[in-house]
Design a protein around this nucleic acid. Structure first.
Length: 811
RNA sequence: GCGGGAGUGCUGGAGUGGUCAAACAGGACAGACUCAAAAUCUGUUAGCUUAGUGCUUACAAAGGUUCGAAUCCUUUCUCCCGCACCA
């Protein structure tokens, strides 16, 4: 017999909504903030992978709620962004309309998943009430010097038709277009000074309870290195370079400047101009693939640099392997002690000068430590010490200083696209760059624009032409919009006070709810959203908006759900599992329980038909059991098992070992007797509830309860009731059944009856479990005490009897 | 290249020093029920072996530590992920 799961689910979803049972307010109770990364609402709706992600959070939220915490568990939408704009253009629709429909669909689907969100706290970034505060923060940052405008070589994706942040370039490709090389353009753009917090971002990583790999990814991304800045004299001017190995300065035999250095041409003398330009053209056409194995190449610029310590004159080359935006875009080359420089020197027959003893530099550079040679007064000094001493010497001569370099770059936030928050800036011919006054916020994104080539905002005249707030003269609005990562950098704060019209959020509300205790989301955000949000928190702290250092105390990365074929779900592969269908066929509780039983929440897993069907059978068994169970007294055995399970399940959920919790819950159900106490039944339901919220509500009410199980207290294990002796006795019985089966199989042939001989003191335990042994062996069982004179024992098996090892005779 | 993680039986996947031939689930096979099937229940699922609780081989491979290792250490191999010429 099957059940109409869908009907049960709809019934309880309605009741939850009507009674607003997941609605929370600030209070005296201890809070707990569970948060999943809010989705970008795509028109294709949710697939089962999302369901997995949100279910992981929902189980946790429900668990914490039952444990008595005041749980904030909100959901919202990262509604602005390029994909919506592109999709809308393709569908000849408007991004706003497009996104609104998608959001509606998302909400419907999320409700059907049984997620216990407080929908009153929802946030959508496309609402002017939200993005107004983006603009507000933009101005605050600008005021504080955290935002600035500069012309710089920036990443440009020709498909997106916009610039990209450094974090959005992966392997030289656009993060959204794996087939599109990112070009470098020199443009004037808005930047956020994330580097100001580089050190704090790096230091505080240590304090976070995050997956180790994410922490390492962030550390690498920030990339702190200690070194020395050294001034070289070139054509009468000084040029700084950064090195981590000042101890090798006497080994400098040439310099290499990045081919993308903005002032490169200052170094190129007339006779070399042709060669250099030819070279630049050549490396421009190099594809990304070739770059991976690319040989180091370069051309002489014609200029020389003077090594400030030994006054040696060394040639300057343009090279394809030097980054323009790290350090100063130029490096001192020490071929004897740097492999890259070594390769370059070999290729162009430049001299190689050993300055550190310890390696053989014929075949490759020696990058280790050792004693200095050929280094003037620093000879015989150890390289580690020489780093200090040479830096001191340079400082004394005002030719250099200690420096820390970060790999992290400032965050480029302007985008030349429509579907984003307008940057609240006005350009006036007379007054220059003028911020929009706070009282004029929000700068509303106009709806009537033409999509096609370039930035659609350029086509809205009413948007562009404004009066200068300062001189009231004719002025022009900024048409760039903000990177949507700006939106997602503080949405978790807005959830705490989402309806505030006067402020982005109330500080006391935020103080109560924040920081997020448990954040859940994908690892792909390690170096994007998770860095930006951390930066934002720190910046807001220094502006007095919040009073903590880190937004997300604990982070959990969920695994991926693959299709039945073991491949990533994708439309083209046709292996996408649709939640609406699953809900109809199996019920959402079944799907939730199934998804979580497959593997630990942080591991990938495959969808399987057999799997979900077997879980459905289990669900039906649970329902049937509750229908038929008789209420009475609970025996010590089930009490023992129950309390052990409570203990384990609680720990398993707490530590995100849902798969193990599921196993223990299933095992416990298998042990439930036909008659037991209401208390045992209720506690069983509570253990199951976070996973299967609808069915447990239904069964809970069938047991005669008027309140919601969703708001009940999580059971606490009574460890006194855990009885190991009973467990042992049970094991002995199982062992006996196993032995009987073993013998049965060995001798073959049909047997109908088993005679069992046990020690007198064990008679009771085995005797009480005769039924079980019968069931497991399929034989009739007769049991005797060895002391029993009337027992039937033709082969005298009772002689073999030992403690916990009864004698067995089959016939 | 660097960094991180992982390799367990037909499959997924527990298990981090003895209680381990290794939970649980799926699959397969067998039995019970049934006219039959499905569902349900029970058993078997490394090999050998005796009317049972025994032995052997096993947790990527090879070594090592230990009275004792899937579990600790070393080396190698394979796979996944991240960064990738950061000076």
């Amino acid at each position: 017999m099957t059940y109409n799961f869908k009907a049960i689910e709809t019934k309880w979803q309605k009741k939850w909504e009507e009674k607003k049972i997941f609605h929370v307010k600030e209070g005296k109770k201890k809070k707990y903030y569970v948060l999943e990364m809010f989705p970008y609402p795509s028109s294709s709706g949710l697939h089962m992978g999302h369901a997995l992600n949100y279910t992981i959070g929902d189980v946790y939220a429900r668990f914490k709620r039952m444990q008595g915490f005041n749980v904030l568990y909100p959901m919202g939408f990262d509604a602005l962004g390029l994909p919506a704009e592109n999709a809308a253009i393709k569908a000849k629709s408007h991004p706003k309309k497009f996104t609104e429909i998608a959001i509606k669909n998302y909400i419907r689907q999320m409700k059907e998943l049984g997620l216990s969100y407080d929908w009153d706290k929802s946030v959508s970034t496309m609402e002017p009430e939200y993005y107004k505060w983006n603009q507000f923060f933009f101005l605050k940052f600008l005021n504080k010097g955290l935002i600035y405008r500069k012309k710089a070589p920036v990443n440009w994706c020709s498909k997106c038709e916009t610039v990209l942040a450094n974090e959005q370039v992966h392997n030289g490709k656009c993060w959204r277009h794996e087939d599109t090389d990112v070009e470098t353009k020199n443009l004037e753009q808005w930047f956020i000074r994330t580097t100001k917090y580089a050190d704090e971002l790096l230091e505080d990583v240590k304090t976070l309870q995050w997956p180790e790999r994410i922490k390492i990814m962030q550390k690498n991304w920030i990339g702190k290195s200690y070194g020395t800045e050294i001034q070289f004299e070139i054509n009468g001017k000084t040029w700084p370079i950064f090195t981590t190995r000042p101890d090798t300065i006497y080994g400098v035999t040439f310099m290499v400047v990045s081919a993308k250095h903005p002032n490169l041409m200052d170094l190129v003398i007339e006779e070399q101009e042709k060669d250099v330009k030819k070279f630049l053209k050549k490396i421009e056409t190099v594809s990304e693939k070739e770059l991976e194995t690319l040989e180091k190449q370069g051309v002489f610029t014609g200029s020389y640099a003077i090594n400030s310590l030994n006054n040696e004159k060394v040639p300057i080359y343009v090279g394809n392997f030097v980054l323009a935006d790290y350090g100063s875009g130029m490096v001192m080359a020490v071929p004897a002690h740097d492999q890259r420089d070594f390769e370059f020197a070999k290729k162009y027959h430049l001299s190689i000068k050993e300055v550190i003893k310890g390696g053989d530099i014929k075949e490759r550079a020696y990058e280790g430590e050792g004693e200095l040679v050929n280094s003037g007064k620093f000879d015989r000094m150890n390289s580690k010490k020489a780093r200090e001493e040479i830096t001191k010497e340079l400082e004394k001569k005002k030719l250099g200083k200690k420096q820390i370099q970060y790999r992290l770059k400032d965050w480029l936030v302007s985008r030349q696209r429509y579907w984003g928050t307008p940057i609240p800036i006005i350009y006036c011919n007379k007054c220059g760059v003028v911020p929009v006054p706070e009282k004029n916020l929000p700068v509303i994104l106009p709806e009537k624009v033409k999509f096609g080539k370039g930035n659609p905002l350029e086509t809205s005249r009413s948007f562009i032409s404004v009066k200068c707030p300062k001189c009231k003269g004719k002025a022009k609005r900024e048409t760039d919009t903000m990177d949507t990562f700006f939106d997602s950098s503080w949405y978790y704060l807005r959830y705490c006070d989402n309806k505030n019209k006067k402020k982005p959020f109330d500080i006391t509300k935020v103080r109560y709810w924040m920081p997020v205790d448990q954040y859940i989301g994908g690892a792909e955000h390690a170096c994007m959203h998770l860095i930006y949000a951390r930066f934002f928190t720190k910046a807001l702290r220094d502006l007095g908006f919040v009073a903590f250092d880190e937004p997300f105390t604990r982070l959990f990365n969920q695994g991926m759900l693959r299709g039945m074929d073991g491949n990533k779900m994708s439309k083209s592969k046709g292996n996408v599992i649709n939640p609406d269908e699953v809900s109809r066929n199996y019920g959402m509780d079944t799907a939730r329980f199934f998804l979580l039983s497959l593997a630990a929440p942080d591991k990938d897993r495959d969808w399987s038909k057999e799997g979900i069907e077997s879980i459905q059978k289990f669900m039906i068994r649970v329902i049937n059991y509750f229908k038929n169970v008789k209420i009475g007294k609970a025996d010590a055995k089930i009490e023992s098992k129950l309390n052990k399970a409570i203990k384990q399940v609680t720990e398993d959920i707490e530590n995100f070992r849902y798969n193990l919790a599921v196993i223990k819950i299933r095992e416990l159900f298998n042990f439930l007797p036909d008659k037991t106490s209401k208390d045992v039944l209720e506690k069983n339901l509570k253990l199951l509830h976070p996973f299967c919220p609808h069915i447990t509500e239904e069964l809970w009410s069938k047991l005669g309860n008027k309140e919601f199980i969703s708001l009940e207290k999580w059971p606490v294990s009574d460890e006194k009731k855990i009885n190991e002796k009973l467990e042992k006795q049970e094991q002995a019985v199982e062992k006996l059944a196993e032995d009987i089966n073993n013998i049965k199989n060995l001798i073959g042939g049909k047997k109908a009856k088993a005679f069992i001989y046990v020690l007198p003191n064990e008679l009771r335990n085995y005797g009480e479990n005769l039924g079980l042994i019968k069931k497991k062996t399929g034989l009739d069982i007769e049991i005797y005490s060895v002391a029993d004179k009337n027992k039937r024992d033709p082969e005298n098996k009772s002689k073999k009897v030992k403690p916990e090892r009864p004698g067995i005779y089959l016939e």
